[in-house]
Structures are given as C-alpha cells and as structure tokens.
Write a protein that binds this DNA or RNA. Structure first.
Length: 563
DNA sequence: AGCCGATGTAGCC
DNA sequence: TGGCTACCCTCGGC
C-alpha cells in the first residue's frame, strides 16, 4: 500500500532567542537581517522539498518479528506495520494500523468501539430524550490549534505534569522527571523560573492549594508531599514515606496520585504499593492509617475528588481498575464501584462541572466514558479507540476534560443562562484533549498530533499539530477560563491558541515566539550537567532537522505591546 | 550518523 | 511469588 500523506498547510516559523539583550552592537541590524534571510532561506527550502516531494524517501524497515521476512519501520514519514503482528492501534489481529477500521473510518483515527453493553431503560431514556437536549459541543473555532509561544528545552528532563494558576491567567506550572518545578509567565514569555530543590525525582502530580493560590502541593516518586510558595520557592515537606532513606527497591515508596479535599482539609496521596494516605493540610501531619485501595503492591497513579460531592473519590492504578470511594467510609473493602479495564489505567477523572461522568485513559488504547455515576457502573457507556499506549520512556498519556464549564455550586438561573452564550464553555461536558502516540505522515513529516475528542460520539473535533514539534506530546492541559492549551512535549512547553480568534493582520507567521530554556533564573540546587547541552541553543531541534534560529525581529517587539 | 541506556508492564517459567 | 525477557512509531547524549 502506498504511504498515506495528510495534506496540511503549515505556516513558516519564526523563532526568537531570549539572549537578545546581550547583543547590541552597531552592526546588529545587519547581522539580524542576515540571519533573518538565512532563516527565510532555510525555511523555504524546508517547505519546498516537501511541496515538490524531492526529499529522498528513507526506508528504514527493521526486524520486529522473529519470523523471517517480516519487518516494520518508517518509509519516509509513514510507518509500515509488521503484517504478522496485531494492529498497533486497536490490538486486534488480522489487519495493520494502516487499515484499522478505527483509523480509517472517520479519516481521523478516532471512532467509538461498539457499544459494550445492551442499553438499560435509564440509558435508553438518556439517549433518546436527554442527550438530544444537551447543548452541542463548543464550536471548532475556539479550539486552540496554533502555537502561540513556547519554551524549548525548558526542563532538563521530560515534562510530567502541568497546572494552570487558578487566578492568574498567564501562569503555567510544570513538573518534570527530575522533580523540578517550573513557573512560567507565558504572557511575558521570558519570565520563567525553575525550582530545583523541591523533589529529588519524578514530580508525578501537583495541585494548587484551594485556600491559598500562591501555594502548590506536589507528590513525587521520592516519597514526599511538598508544599511550595511560588514566589520564593521555599518548600516544606508534609509527609515523607522514606524517612530512613534508600533501603533497596523493595521498600522505597513513591507517591503518584494526589488531590485535595478542601471540605475535609486534607491532601490525599497514594503510593506504589496500593495505599492511600490522608494528610491534614493545617497540621501538616498524616491523619489516620494508610488504606489499601488498590491491589497490594500496585501503583495508584491517579486520585480525583468529585467537584460536586467532594466525599466521592475516584482512584485508578496499575491493577487495571478505577475505583469509586466514599470518603466517609474509607477502608479496604468499602469500595462503591470497581471500573474494570483491560490494562493499566493512566488516569480517571470526574467531569468538571456536574461530576457525574467519568473519563478514563487506559494502556489498552481506549478511552472509557461512564455517562453517569448513578447508573450501573459494571461496564462503560462508551469506549473510544485512540492511540496512547506507550508505557515507558514517555510520560503516560491522560485524557483531560475541558474545564471551561460552570463551577460547582454556582447558582444558574435557567432563563438567563449566560454560559451558553459563551462559546468557550462546554456545557455538555463532552470535550477532552489527549496527545496521540501513533504518527501520521503530514506533508512528508511524521507528526504526533494532540487530539480533541467529543467523548459523546468519539468524533475527533480537532487534531492539533505543528511541523516543528516532531516529538510526542503526552502532557496536555486546557486553560480553566481561556481558549488556551498548554502542552508538555519532552523537555519543552507549548502554548496554543485558536488561529481563527486572532485578527487577520496578526495571522502572519511572526506570531510564533519560541524561547530557549537554559538561562532562566536559577533558584535552589541544580546539578552541574543540567544545561551542559545548551551551548547550541541557537537551534530548534526537530529530530535532526535543525531550523536555524532567527534573532528577534522588529515586529516581535510590537507583539508584546499588542497584548 | 549511529548506537546506547533509561525506563514500565506483561507474560512466561 | 520471583526472575527473566519481550515489547520495539522515544529521546537525548555521546
């Protein structure tokens, strides 16, 4: 079969370097011009080869199968599957990823698996009477689909989690595999800080303190829960599960899932042995005993308190289950529901407004949706096949709800429903975002898009990508108020905004601002080799294809004024 | 450019 | 239950 190519028009890229202030000699302008032209040339060239299809087709099929004669690998930018293996996407034998019905049916790669359970009467009523009345999902033009700004190689290791500031619209927090915490003001682009001494390894989850939005709680594989002041970077440890240090892998406890229950004043964390811990956020001490909520010895990777009824807790982990708990009766065996999956569950979230839906991401390449927690939870209402099953080397993929819905406990006067008038809101609680593992051939480049999925239908609302981001983007978070998407891809951060929302005059290629990491204010202890490789920070590395960096153009300076 | 290592889960014995 | 190895569209460093 001929490799398939998806045609998408990409704009040219302009990359800003954040060491501009260092150079201010008289021939600066010329140099700038020169570099600009050079960049123009390079970019043209880059685009031209693709347009004319002149770039040589690289064939790198490699042996992936023990049987002779069966190989797989890239043919140009299209990946060819080994015909002897089950489909990489849906895991079913008899076809390859290229011909998988879940990939080709909608032309976008996302289609719901058949309804798994026969409809019960309540469900029938829901489908026939309630569902049609739900306001349709938000229009496509508010989907963030174009890179607005970025920090390239901001973190020294891959990004593991992201969190938007609850009140300041331009602050993005990011955690990494090394345990460092990034604070980036993406409106000022260059204002970025990395705190390096909070944790000693993977920062798995973080949450803002509901009582004080200048404080952030974080759970790490070093076995501690931290509480950090964002201004000063001063951090305190709420709990340490390894007070005696390293005693071998059998006893080293790591913290993964985390959430905060404001009403009870507790921080909930869960470890890699199946246990849940409650930490009193006022006294900073553990309350009660650890409770085994998942299979003994298995990782509990996610915790989520219901936004509407905070005593309802959702957990998920490596024992292939997501579980529903009542905080008032928390003990092993008191589980309300066990939501079964075929593989590890990367994440499980209640819907952000009503809290009645559940969305999970599992390593079996399926998103699962339970439409109501008040119904029979034996099997999901829907399964959506989606490629996200990479389980090592990368941060696990998690489907995230669009949080732009009315906050819980908000009184809504039905005759004056303001939120329906606002396009940014998704009153139907149907929009989710998740990065895609499998690549597609877009104009000769293999890219891994970020998918916006209508979880009511399985439809792909948008696939978002940029030709310069050839790395996989497993970490994604939608802004709680604005039409903004934040992505963590490898060590870099990206901010996306809707293309259509910009003024036409602003739609030029120069809107993309890329800042290179490495010289941000350093606070706390950092290891020596953190930025050893930053000497070549004039390159925006695109998997070997280096796009030459342009120095800040004049129009770039205007950009900030426009904001 | 090409190789290597870190890394998590599953399935086998 | 533990040890071993297969998985095989990563990414960054040397």
């Amino acid at each position: 079969m001929a490799p398939q190519v998806r045609r998408t028009a990409f704009p040219k890229v302009l990359i800003e370097r954040d060491t501009d202030s260092e150079q201010s000699s008289s021939d600066d302008d010329d140099e700038e011009e020169e570099q600009e032209n050079e960049n123009e040339e390079k970019t043209e060239e880059f685009n031209d080869t693709k347009k004319k299809g002149k770039s040589p087709i690289t064939i790198s099929l490699k042996k992936v199968c023990k049987k002779t004669g069966h190989e797989a690998g890239f043919k140009g930018a299209t990946y060819i599957d080994c015909p002897m293996k089950p489909c990489f996407l849906c895991k079913m034998p008899g076809h390859t990823t290229m011909t998988c019905p879940h990939r080709v049916a909608t032309e976008h790669g996302v289609v719901p698996a058949p309804h798994v359970n026969t409809q019960n009467p309540v469900e029938f009523v829901f489908e026939r009477q309630l569902k049609p009345r739900i306001t349709p999902i938000k229009p496509a033009y508010v989907i963030p689909n174009q890179v607005d700004c970025a920090v390239i190689r901001y973190h020294s290791r891959r990004v593991t989690c992201l969190e938007f500031h609850p009140t300041n619209n331009h602050i993005l927090l990011s955690g990494d595999k090394k345990g460092q915490l990034g604070v980036w003001d993406f409106a000022k682009v260059h204002e970025k800080t990395v705190y390096g001494n909070i944790h000693s390894c993977i920062l798995n989850n973080m949450r803002f303190s509901p009582a004080n939005d200048g404080m952030i709680y974080a759970a790490s594989s070093d076995g501690t829960v931290s509480c950090t002041d964002l201004e000063t970077g001063i951090s305190s440890t709420l709990m340490n599960l390894n007070p005696d240090g390293w005693q071998g892998p059998g006893s080293w406890r790591m913290l993964y899932g985390m959430d905060i229950n404001l009403e009870r004043g507790v921080v909930l964390v869960a470890d890699n042995f199946g246990f849940l811990y409650l930490v009193d956020s006022r006294s900073n001490s553990q309350t009660g005993k650890a409770i085994m909520i998942h299979k003994k010895g298995s990782k509990v990777v996610g915790l989520h308190c219901n936004p509407f009824q905070p005593d309802l807790l959702l957990s998920c982990g490596n024992d292939h289950f997501a579980r529903l708990w009542d905080m008032r009766r928390l003990e092993a065996g008191s589980v309300l529901a066990n939501l079964e999956h075929r593989r590890v569950v990367n994440s499980a979230y209640f819907s952000p407004f009503s809290g009645t839906k559940i969305l999970t991401t599992s390593q079996d390449n399926r998103l699962r949706i339970w439409d109501s927690i008040f119904r029979d939870l034996d099997s999901p209402s829907r399964e959506i096949v989606h490629s996200h099953d990479f389980n090592r080397h990368l941060t696990p993929f998690r489907a995230e709800w669009d949080p732009k819905v009315i906050k819980p406990n908000t009184v809504i006067v039905l005759r004056h429903i303001s939120f329906i008038l606002n396009d940014s809101l998704d009153p139907s609680e149907s929009l989710a975002v998740i990065g895609r593992y499998i690549s597609e051939n877009y104009n000769g480049t293999a890219l891994h898009p970020i998918d916006f999925i209508d979880i009511n239908t399985g439809q792909l609302v948008a696939e978002v990508m940029d030709p310069n981001i050839t790395t996989i983007t497993p970490v994604n978070k939608l802004h709680p108020r604005d039409d903004v998407l934040a992505s963590g891809s490898s060590r870099s951060l990206f901010i996306w905004r809707p293309k259509e929302k910009f003024d036409v005059s602003e739609q030029s290629d120069t809107r993309k601002i890329i800042v290179f990491g490495g010289d941000e204010k350093k606070r706390g202890k950092r290891s020596k080799d953190d930025y050893d490789d930053d000497s070549d920070d004039d390159k925006f590395n695109v998997k070997g294809k280096n796009v030459k960096v342009k120095k800040p153009a004049k129009q770039m300076t205007n950009r900030k004024a426009k904001r």
